[in-house]
Amino acid sequence: MKMMSENNIFHRISFSIKRKIIQIVAFGITNSHIGNFTQGKIYTGKWKNFCAPGLNCYSCPAASFACPIGALQAVNGSMNFDLSFYVTGFLLAIGVLFGRAICGFACPFGLIQELLNKIPSPKKKLPGWMKYIKYAILVIFVLCLPVLVTNYMGVGKPAFCEFICPAGMLEGSLPLLSTHPELRATIGPIFSIKLLMVIITIAGSIIFHRFFCKVFCPLGAIYGLLNRFSFFRLTIDRNLCVNCGKCARVCKMDVDPVKNCDSTECIRCGACVHACPKKALRLGFQK
């Protein structure tokens, strides 16, 4: 009897709350070394051999894993290698298993943006063409610049981390600057560029749902391209669908699941599944 009531409670918890719980747990696992914030150091253990599936700066004091985009640039720009098979393979494997569900469930920076979007303000939709910016960023800043622009030793710089990624400043720079006064002497022009990106991202995330994911995130671009092949996916039963349009109206990623269940923008958040009055949409692992 008791078990039955527990089951009922579990079923009564809405999908969005379950997703939020998974996001918080993923955030906690990815950033489990909270104590490092006060000590002003970063975790240096063996888990940093591995990449986190979501965007999370490895210079954040609490970070437990390497950032996949940072790691990709580090290997691509290193003296010995021009392409990281390890990180590319990791992204392909994770991407084909989960697609952009990683963005919706396991990305710490995605959670931060969703929380920022809770701040009361007029909510707007982005023009459709802006979603293509992230592909340009992936090709230019993540894949090309670290390999092509190198110093005399043949080492390239992590151009995406250096000029675009606001996670590094929010999760790494600001906590470390507060505990290491000597680091303040190293503040230069790059800091201003990054600060501008942080301001744009925070302001954008308050007004637009997941602004950084939609416009700038190269990891979202990779996983988005793999949505078409992913095992965890959204499907529609066209015999049940009555084309009421509720799913498209509730989608904060501006996707119409009736037109395309495998959209590169779909983060598999499940809002459309919950909104469908005919239960025509299904989210999960399937053929």
Partner: peptide
């Protein structure tokens, strides 16, 4: 041995990644 490059990058504070340096 790409993991060694990843580990080496991830266990040191990357100043350019966090907008310093």
């Amino acid at each position: 041995d790409e993991m060694a490059v990843v580990l080496n990058k991830a266990v040191h504070i990357c100043l350019e990644c966090i907008g310093l340096g």
